[in-house]
Amino acid sequence: MKVFIRIIIFSVVLSLCYWGFSNYGIPQVIPEAPPVEEKISGSMTMDQYIALGGKIFNGKGTCTLCHNPVGGRAPLLVESGKDGAPIGARAADRIKDPRYKGKAKTAEEYIYESEVDPSAFVVAGFGKPGTNDTVSPMPATNKGSIGLSEAEIGAVIAYLQKSAGVQVTVKLPTGAAPAAAAPAAAEPQSAKTAEEAFGKHGCTTCHTIPGIAEGGDVGPNFKGLSSRAGSRVKGLSPKEYIMQSIVSPDAYTVKGFEPGTMPADLGEKMTVKELDMIIKYLMEKTG
């Protein structure tokens, strides 16, 4: 029993030593409190509204697919580049451009117009090929696959103005609008159908896909894709070819199209399921 008590004392004291060292031998750093989570519903402050705009711009709105410094497919909006100051700052000058024929009177209206009616003014050099910069390749953001609500478009404008460092003129939407806009802008959920997935990743912005109403012609038309896919790259089955074209688009570029146009990070952004659905759709429905 004596031994037992001795070792118990020994163990207890040893643990206490470790406890003491942890408490008094080292400084007690109080770690940072968890960051405040953004409030998604209810009333929004302007800052949150702007942040929401940023999220849409970089996510759901698919804007950065083209408006990025890498591809050069569209004018830069947030950064200043060779197109001049960020859009929030240069919008006011656009209205004064002799080629401008739209209805906007203010910078805010101009950005709004560009989002819902992209062809109202096309920046020189960025029109659809062969249209002499009268038709924009950009899809209207309030329709189709992107389908932003008014509140969301407003948020994007606010974000663009804030990024440019100019006065944010957009008014906070009242009532239910932000609440409705917010969940949509929350983290993207996995698409449930191939059609949805096409929309989510903005495929129709550039490609025309059989069975889907609108489509662009920046990239190849997918009519007949499944029958020709097998013959594109030696050694790749049609399915593998389509997969490669999505995951690493620059591995093979169809003749007549610019390499580097298709975003290279789609593979990372898509969930496995979405990729599956898309491939399946393209295999089955493009004849």
């Binding site: 406890w19 942890s22 408490n23 008094y24 007690q28 750093v29 109080i30 770690p31 968890p34 989570e37």
Partner: peptide, 25 residues
């Protein structure tokens, strides 16, 4: 999956050492 409970903060090492010591006992 965010922890939004009241205990979501990280405790200090001294505090943790206390809990560990109790667990060890």
């Amino acid at each position: 999956f965010r922890d939004n409970s009241l205990d979501a903060y990280t405790p200090t090492l001294g505090y943790a050492a206390g809990i560990i010591t109790i667990a060890v006992y």
